[in-house]
Simulated scan of single mutants.
Amino acid sequence: MARTSTEQVAQPGPAERPAGALDGKVALVAGATRGAGRAIARELGGAGATVYCTGRSTAGSPSDYGRSETIEGTAQLIGAAGGTAHPVVVDHLDAGAVRDLVDRIEQEQGRLDILVNDIGGEAYVEFGIPLWDYDLQAGMRLFDAGFRTHLQTSHAALGLLARTAGGLVVEITDGTRAYNAEHYRSTVFLDVTKTAVDRLAYAEGHDLEPFGGTAVSVSPGWLRSEMMLDGFGVTEDTWRTAAASNRGTPDAVPPYEFVISETPAMLARGIAALAADRDRSRWNTRSTSSFELAGHYGLSDVDGSRPDAWGFISALETTPAGDLDVDRFR
């Protein structure tokens, strides 16, 4: 049985962090309880930023995800990395609560330099159901969690962020703009949600440009998060062997494509490097990936690899798995 603690997700070491590169910066990471959001908050804090990390799961009061990770646990990881963390329990579907959060940041810090919108809603996805048979309430729950949270948080926070030139907004989505333009993402609600998040970053970039700000959408590859490991019934020690053994077996769990998965650390390292880049405006309105950011900034995952998940998944569409050199995508 897969563990549900943070131990199963490989954690980045301090060597690859741009120590001090974000000193004096203030960041808000929405959806920082686990997975990518937790890793991003940890990296930003380790690089010197003061990080407000939000989520719904707190000690003694878990969210409906039913997970063991808490926002306090994320704050502890940031502290262990040498950073300053402010864990705040916020439901980002509550516009008033989000406004109160931004007001608090303004009162306590007087500025906001980095906003990362990472709430995904993937736990609410139902696959293989056409739109007309999809439960509308369930579909809207996915859309609200995966997109409306981003929109409401940006609506509340961008006024403060735009006061200081050089602000950065990162919208975390699933799939790059180029990939999603050519691929249907399994269900209408998931497809619309993830492409809407990318378009939000594109639009935000246009609004922020006159104020010296940058907005970008970033997609990880196949993320080896706590929830994904548990969902596939594997651990950090067994995932590669389990996925490789399913080559050529349709609908296997975990799927063969999971051999080119990545830990949340690679995405987090790329975003921390982007935030520290004085020329980050070159990324404004763009869609990018953890793989592209890692290549641009010379970064890797915790094991030294640089997985190209989207390249691998695309290659499998035209080339039999047995004919692909897996190592070429690591």
Rank of each mutant, 00 (worst) to 15 (best):
residue 245 S to G: 12
residue 266 M to T: 09
residue 124 Y to A: 15
residue 158 L to M: 14
residue 273 A to E: 06
residue 22 L to M: 07
residue 61 S to H: 14
residue 149 T to C: 11
residue 96 G to H: 10
residue 299 L to S: 04
residue 143 F to Y: 15
residue 167 G to Y: 08
residue 190 L to N: 14
residue 277 D to K: 11
residue 114 I to Q: 05
residue 105 I to N: 05
residue 261 S to L: 05
residue 274 L to V: 04
residue 225 S to T: 14
residue 100 D to S: 15
residue 194 K to C: 00
residue 177 R to Q: 14
residue 198 D to Y: 12
residue 236 E to N: 15
residue 204 E to N: 13
residue 41 A to V: 00
residue 88 V to Y: 02
residue 316 L to N: 04
residue 230 D to I: 03
residue 210 P to H: 10
residue 97 A to I: 02
residue 326 V to P: 02
residue 181 A to L: 12
residue 98 V to K: 04
residue 82 G to Y: 10
residue 191 D to E: 06
residue 47 A to M: 05
residue 285 T to G: 01
residue 38 R to M: 13
residue 69 E to C: 04
residue 308 D to F: 12
residue 44 L to D: 03
residue 248 G to K: 10
residue 282 R to H: 12
residue 36 A to Y: 01
residue 263 T to C: 02
residue 55 G to K: 08
residue 271 I to A: 00
residue 326 V to H: 07
residue 193 T to P: 08
residue 303 D to P: 08
residue 161 L to P: 04
residue 296 H to Y: 13
residue 89 V to I: 09
residue 116 V to D: 00
residue 164 T to R: 15
residue 78 I to E: 09
residue 323 D to H: 10
residue 39 A to F: 09
residue 60 G to N: 08
residue 80 A to L: 13
residue 171 E to M: 12
residue 60 G to H: 08
residue 96 G to Q: 11
residue 179 Y to I: 05
residue 140 M to G: 00
residue 242 A to T: 01
residue 329 F to S: 08
residue 180 N to P: 00
residue 83 G to I: 06
residue 101 L to I: 04
residue 119 I to N: 01
residue 330 R to A: 13
residue 260 I to P: 00
residue 54 T to I: 09
residue 261 S to P: 01
residue 59 A to H: 10
residue 8 Q to G: 01
residue 101 L to N: 03
residue 250 P to A: 11
residue 263 T to P: 07
residue 326 V to S: 06
residue 115 L to Q: 02
residue 233 G to I: 05
residue 130 P to H: 07
residue 38 R to L: 14
residue 280 R to D: 04
residue 239 W to D: 05
residue 85 A to D: 07
residue 22 L to P: 03
residue 21 A to K: 09
residue 325 D to V: 11
residue 30 A to W: 09
residue 258 F to D: 01
